[in-house]
C-alpha cells in the first residue's frame, strides 16, 4: 500500500463513523457535545432583594428610568410602557412618583431611538405627562425634535414631525419663543423642503439621496403650517388675560409671580452669547420681522411650485399659503435707517 492510499483510507475511516451502541452501557456522547457543567465555590447573586415587602412605586419608576438606556429595544419599550401606565393611572391631584423634571431629560433622548415601537411608546409617555411640565422643558424637547427631523433615516424624520405637532399643540408659545426655536426651526424646514433656492444655477434638481415621496412632504408642510400659525398669529392666552379686567389693577399679570420657570431666560445671563439664529424671539412682531427677512421669500417661491403639483400636496400648500398670508397681514416694516 502506498503512503498516499494509506492516508486516504485513514481519512475515510475517520469520517462518518457510526458509534456502536451496546446494551447495558452508557450511550456514547456525540462528538459535538459540549459540557455545560461547572464548579464554583460560591455563587454571587448580583441583585438580591432582601426586603420582604415589594419595592415602592417610586423605586420601581427610578429603576425603569434607568432601564431606558438598556441595549435591548424591547426592554426600553417595556420600561416606557410601565412608566406610561403608572402616570396615566395616577390620580391627577397627587404628585407623580417621579417628577417630570427627572423623567423628561432621560426620556427625551429616545426621540432619536432606532426602533419604531420605542419611539411610539415614547410619544405616548410624553402625552401622558402634565402639559405644564412639558412647557418648561420645551426648549430641550425642541432640540431633540429638530435632530430627529433632520435625521438620515426617514422614519425618524417622520416621527420628529409627529413630536413637533404634539409639542406645538401643547406648548406652542414656548416652542416658538425659546432660544433658537424660531429661526433655527424655519431654517430646518426650508432645508427639509429644499426651498432654499440657493443653488439656483442648476438645470434640474436631481431627486436627492434619501428624499422621501410627497407624503412626507405633505406632513412636513402640515407641521410647518401649524408651527407658523403658532408663531405668527396672536396668542390666545394673551386675549384671555386681557378680557378679565379687575378694575383698578390693570396689568396685574405683569406684577404677579410668573408661572414659568427661568423667567429671565431671555437675558441669557449664564449661557454663551447668542447670534441671530440662536436668539429668543418672544414677540410676535419680532418673529414676523425675522420671518420676513429670512424665510418668507423662499416659502412663497416654494409654495408656488408646490401648488402647481395639486393633489394632497396642493391642498397642504394652500393651507400654508393661507397661514402665511394671515399671519403677515398686519406686518409693515418701518424703514429704519441703519
Amino acid at each position: 500500500m502506498t503512503s498516499s492510499s494509506k492516508k486516504k483510507q485513514e481519512k475515510k475511516k475517520k469520517d462518518f463513523q457510526k458509534p456502536k451502541l451496546k446494551v447495558g452501557k452508557a450511550k456514547p456522547k456525540a462528538a459535538s457535545s459540549t459540557s455545560t457543567s461547572f464548579k464554583a465555590k460560591s455563587i454571587a447573586l448580583k441583585q438580591q432583594a432582601l426586603s420582604t415587602s415589594a419595592p415602592t412605586l417610586e423605586a420601581q419608576c427610578a429603576h425603569h428610568l434607568g432601564l431606558l438606556n438598556h441595549k435591548a429595544d424591547t426592554q426600553r419599550k417595556e420600561s416606557l410602557a410601565f412608566l406610561t401606565s403608572v402616570i396615566t393611572s395616577h390620580p391627577p391631584t397627587a404628585p407623580l412618583p417621579q417628577p417630570s423634571s427627572v423623567i423628561i431629560p432621560v426620556a427625551q433622548r429616545l426621540i432619536l431611538d432606532g426602533s419604531n415601537s420605542v419611539r411610539q411608546q415614547l410619544l405616548k409617555l410624553l402625552q401622558s405627562l402634565p402639559p405644564g411640565d412639558i412647557a418648561s422643558h420645551a426648549d430641550q424637547l425642541l432640540l431633540h425634535t429638530r435632530a430627529a427631523m433632520t435625521h438620515l433615516a426617514s422614519e425618524i424624520r417622520v416621527f420628529g414631525l409627529e413630536v413637533l405637532e404634539w409639542l406645538v399643540g401643547i406648548a406652542g408659545v414656548e416652542v416658538v419663543s425659546c432660544a433658537g426655536g424660531w429661526v433655527k426651526m424655519l431654517k430646518c424646514f426650508l432645508s427639509l423642503l429644499s426651498w432654499q433656492s440657493e443653488a439656483s444655477g442648476k438645470w434640474s434638481t436631481a431627486k436627492s439621496y434619501g428624499k422621501s415621496d410627497s407624503k412626507i412632504q405633505v406632513k412636513q408642510m402640515n407641521a410647518l403650517t401649524s408651527f407658523l400659525r403658532t408663531g405668527l398669529y396672536h396668542a390666545q392666552a394673551m386675549a384671555v388675560v386681557a378680557s378679565e379686567s379687575n378694575f383698578p389693577l390693570w396689568q396685574t399679570d405683569h406684577h404677579v409671580l410668573s408661572e414659568r420657570s427661568n423667567v429671565y431666560a431671555h437675558l441669557n445671563l449664564f449661557g454663551a452669547t447668542r447670534d441671530e439664529e440662536a436668539e429668543m424671539y418672544e414677540d410676535r412682531e419680532d418673529r414676523q420681522r425675522v420671518f420676513h427677512d429670512r424665510a418668507e421669500a423662499a416659502i412663497v417661491a416654494g409654495l408656488e411650485h408646490a401648488t402647481k403639483g395639486g393633489g394632497e400636496l396642493g391642498r397642504a400648500s394652500a393651507q400654508l399659503r393661507k397661514v402665511v398670508k394671515e399671519g403677515m397681514a398686519d406686518f409693515y416694516r418701518e424703514e429704519v435707517a441703519p
Binding site: 435632530a147 438620515l152 433655527k184 432645508s191 432654499q196 443653488a199 439621496y209 454663551a272
Partner: peptide
C-alpha cells in the same frame, strides 16, 4: 452639487446634536 441639500441636512443635524452636546 447634486447632494447639496442632503449635506445641508446633515450639517443641520450636526449643529443640533452639537447644541445638545454642549
Amino acid at each position: 452639487q447634486s447632494y447639496r441639500d442632503d449635506f445641508s441636512n446633515q450639517y443641520q443635524q450636526y449643529e443640533t446634536l452639537r447644541d445638545l452636546f454642549l
